[in-house]
Write a protein that binds this DNA or RNA. Structure first.
Lengths: 120, 120
DNA sequence: CGGTATCCCGTTTGATACTG
DNA sequence: CAGTATCAAACGGGATACCG
């Protein structure tokens, strides 16, 4: 079980956990695992995210020190997002969570069907 | 990196990942790690969660086959929530994520201060 | 005890347009 | 290319009240 304070309201750990409990953040962190990616590339790769939400999420992750933003003075300007050292310490765990989802999605979908079939 | 389909919109893996990307769900799953817990006990332990949201989250987790709900015909009625076998396969990973948050919250908070100090 | 129903409001999101 | 600005619409979540 987790440390006691994780269950406390307004503790720093909970704030961090809150930030990680975001599907876009998890997908972005994982997508950056292989190296830096540009803004619109990320936007295209992560299907369904809007420009606005991608921008907001990247800003939060940068503020948390998990990703870095590097601007290149090309015309037009190019921006690359990559993991920081801190961010890299997290990707294995994120990948583990996502891989659980990949491995067990069939079981989850089956459970949902069984639950729904029980007619609530 | 994750399998390609994780980045696809409306894929089952993403649905599962969405569900896990919920701070309350993560806290509940972890809290049930040591054994079944009653509704109001859970409500008291996980500070800040409302009755409504706890009820909703438990229902979703039960539908996903991650937790089980057992009703005892006492007066008044008693309800215990516990992990299913499927749920138990997930708790280690959830704990890893939360422990990362515990270990690295100082670094994250420091990064936030540095970012904010840079005056945006 | 363990919920559900209702109202209501703040936050989030999507769509669209615009800019350095 | 990589964003920001703005507005409306949708959603989630808190407060409260009530029920088996």
């Amino acid at each position: 079980m987790l440390a006691f304070d994780v269950y406390e309201d307004r503790c720093p750990t909970r704030m961090v956990l809150d930030r990680l409990a975001d599907k876009w953040a998890l997908l972005i962190l994982d997508r950056l695992h292989d190296g830096p990616v540009r803004f619109n590339h990320l936007r295209r790769d992560i299907k369904g995210i809007s420009q606005k939400v991608l921008s907001q999420t990247l800003k939060k992750l940068e503020r948390d020190g998990l990703i870095s933003r590097q601007v290149f003075a090309t015309v037009p300007v190019t921006v690359e997002y990559g993991l920081t050292d801190l961010g890299r310490t997290l990707t294995d765990t994120v990948a583990a969570l996502a891989h659980w989802a990949e491995r067990n999605m069939d079981a989850v979908v089956a459970a949902q069907k069984a639950y729904d079939a029980a007619a609530r």
